[in-house]
Design a protein around this nucleic acid. Structure first.
Length: 316
DNA sequence: TAGGCCATCTGGTCCT
DNA sequence: AGGACCAGATGGCCTA
């Protein structure tokens, strides 16, 4: 009877968290079934491998002789591997949490239509780029250029999502994400769904979007500057970053330009800008919330499907 | 069923 | 030695 109760309790606990259950299932499946690594299995299968080698006709291998896998070593190895797996899982969860936080500060955030990891990074890059452009050119966010900048290199569904936000109007797009905006996001008000054609990207035909579930975010620079504000604003579980911050980011971008003005992706990815005119680059200064002493980030350009076309939109 | 996305495991490398 | 990070491999899930 007590067994039944405990099993029942276990089941309830397990069913209470589907995600956790799936995670644990995966984990235990790997940890238990595979249990031992290939190396371990080999060692177990032939614990006298080394002796075979010595006794057999195979030529001796160079290098230090492989230590015999005793049961104690085997056990230590297994424990170490299991611990490493757990750490790796934790690390990846942290990475995913950070990515989720990034999703939330994107111009459009949808709980139901979650951006993939790669699309999140692409959109983030475009967003930064577009905002930089706004700062420099003094343009509004209503222009077609802003939209195209945001959508550059994105897949069709992501482009649709962004375009949907934009076509709701900038006032909708930049509403505070914490406000309930279902009335603004209701496509019935506008009478149509959106199908923005992303410039030049072969995209999977995921169809049009329904903007019911969009959360729209104002382009606020404040959170970027103040980690505590970020944490508070986003209500994120990740503690605010308290370490050294990056050196003053050159708003002047991070892409080298070729002579014709196109970005030179072959060169280093040092943070440079397609907008050298702004004169904000390298200002280590006054009241800047950025600090020095940390290696600066280098954005992998390969994120984009068409990195070499990215700049074209600015030169038109 | 194929393709995209994802979580996890794993072994290698680097660093402390 | 052990932890962090990384990239490749693998298998599951989902959608068109």
């Amino acid at each position: 009877m007590s067994e039944i109760v405990s099993v029942h309790g276990w089941m309830e606990e397990a069913l209470s968290s589907q995600d956790e259950m799936e995670r644990n299932q995966r984990q235990s499946a790997y940890d238990i079934i595979s249990g031992l690594s290939h190396e371990e299995r080999c060692s177990i299968d032939g614990e006298d491998d080394d002796e075979e080698e010595e006794d057999g006709e195979k030529p001796k291998k160079r290098g230090p002789k492989k230590k015999k896998m005793t049961k104690a070593r085997l056990e230590r190895f297994r424990v170490r591997r299991v611990k490493a797996n757990a750490r790796e899982r934790t690390r990846m969860h942290g990475l995913n949490d950070a990515l989720e936080n990034l999703r939330r500060v994107m111009p459009c955030y949808s709980k139901t239509q979650k951006l993939s990891k790669i699309e999140t990074l692409r959109l983030a890059r475009n967003y930064i780029w577009a905002l930089s452009d706004i700062l420099e050119q003094g343009q509004s966010t209503e222009g077609k250029g802003f939209l195209e900048m945001l959508c550059k290199g994105l897949s069709q569904p992501t482009s649709n999502l962004v375009a949907g936000c934009m076509q709701l109007g900038p006032q909708a797009m930049f509403l505070d994400k914490h406000e309930e905006k279902s009335h603004l996001c209701d496509s019935s008000l506008t009478g149509h769904t959106y199908n923005y054609q992303s410039p030049g990207l072969p995209s999977p035909p995921y169809g049009n979007i329904d903007v019911h579930h969009l959360h729209l975010k104002p382009p606020s620079f404040k959170p970027v500057m103040d980690p505590s504000v970020v944490s508070h604003t986003l209500n994120c579980t990740t503690p605010p970053y308290e370490g050294a911050l990056t050196p003053p980011l050159s708003i002047s971008g991070n892409f080298s330009l070729k002579q014709d003005g196109s970005p030179d992706m072959d060169k280093s990815y040092a943070f440079r800008s397609p907008y050298p005119a702004l004169g904000l680059s390298g200002s280590h200064g006054h009241g800047s919330h950025f600090q020095t002493g940390v290696p600066r980030y280098e954005l992998p350009i390969e994120m984009a499907y068409e990195p070499y076309q990215h700049h074209a939109i600015f030169t038109e």
